[in-house]
Computed example of a mutant assay.
Amino acid sequence: MANIPIDQLAHEITSAVREYTEDVAVAIDKKVDQVANKVLKEAQALAPKRTGEYAKTFVKTKEGGYGEHRRIIWNKKHYRRVHLLEFGHAKVNGGRVPAYPHLRPAYEKHAANLPDEIKEIIRNGG
């Protein structure tokens, strides 16, 4: 341990906390990206494949400012169709079209452990 003059103690504590915060933020951002990539690949794999175009147009978008690590998985070209395929829908002349769940199961499979993984990152300091 280094000898620190008392007038520099506040500066040293502040710089140590800042370094810890930056390390944790980088590690959390990396983990959120990894999970988002897994969800994206799983959603593409589970998506209905009549022609294959629907599955190919899923993308990952990064949102949020400092301290916010948010990724959104969405279908760039067929965004209006996602909820119809995910949950099914009524036909014009009666009856229902079956549901093809693909986005929610991918999210539940990969993102369910994310809060625990983030807590572990915070405990380990990045």
Rank of each mutant, 00 (worst) to 15 (best):
4 I>S: 12
4 I>D: 08
5 P>F: 10
9 L>N: 08
10 A>D: 13
11 H>T: 13
13 I>K: 05
16 A>E: 13
17 V>E: 09
19 E>I: 09
20 Y>G: 02
21 T>Q: 14
22 E>N: 15
22 E>T: 14
23 D>T: 05
23 D>W: 00
23 D>M: 14
29 D>P: 00
30 K>P: 00
32 V>W: 02
39 V>E: 00
39 V>A: 02
41 K>W: 04
41 K>E: 10
41 K>T: 03
42 E>N: 09
44 Q>M: 14
44 Q>T: 04
48 P>K: 13
48 P>I: 13
48 P>R: 13
49 K>A: 11
49 K>H: 12
50 R>D: 15
51 T>S: 14
51 T>R: 10
52 G>V: 07
53 E>S: 11
53 E>A: 14
54 Y>H: 11
54 Y>P: 07
56 K>N: 07
57 T>L: 12
58 F>L: 08
59 V>I: 14
59 V>E: 06
61 T>C: 02
62 K>V: 15
62 K>T: 14
64 G>P: 08
67 G>K: 10
71 R>K: 05
73 I>E: 03
73 I>P: 03
73 I>Y: 08
74 W>K: 06
75 N>I: 07
76 K>W: 00
78 H>I: 00
79 Y>N: 08
86 E>D: 06
86 E>P: 04
86 E>W: 01
87 F>I: 00
89 H>K: 14
91 K>S: 00
92 V>N: 11
92 V>Y: 07
93 N>A: 15
94 G>C: 12
95 G>P: 09
95 G>E: 08
96 R>G: 04
96 R>A: 11
97 V>K: 12
98 P>C: 07
98 P>F: 07
98 P>K: 15
99 A>I: 14
99 A>G: 14
100 Y>Q: 06
100 Y>L: 08
100 Y>M: 03
101 P>I: 09
101 P>Y: 04
103 L>R: 04
105 P>G: 10
105 P>N: 10
106 A>L: 10
108 E>R: 11
108 E>S: 03
111 A>T: 05
111 A>Y: 04
112 A>Y: 04
112 A>H: 08
113 N>C: 00
114 L>N: 01
114 L>E: 02
115 P>T: 02
115 P>L: 06
116 D>T: 14
116 D>A: 15
116 D>S: 15
118 I>M: 09
119 K>V: 04
119 K>W: 02
123 R>M: 01
123 R>S: 10
123 R>G: 01
125 G>Y: 09
125 G>I: 02
125 G>A: 09
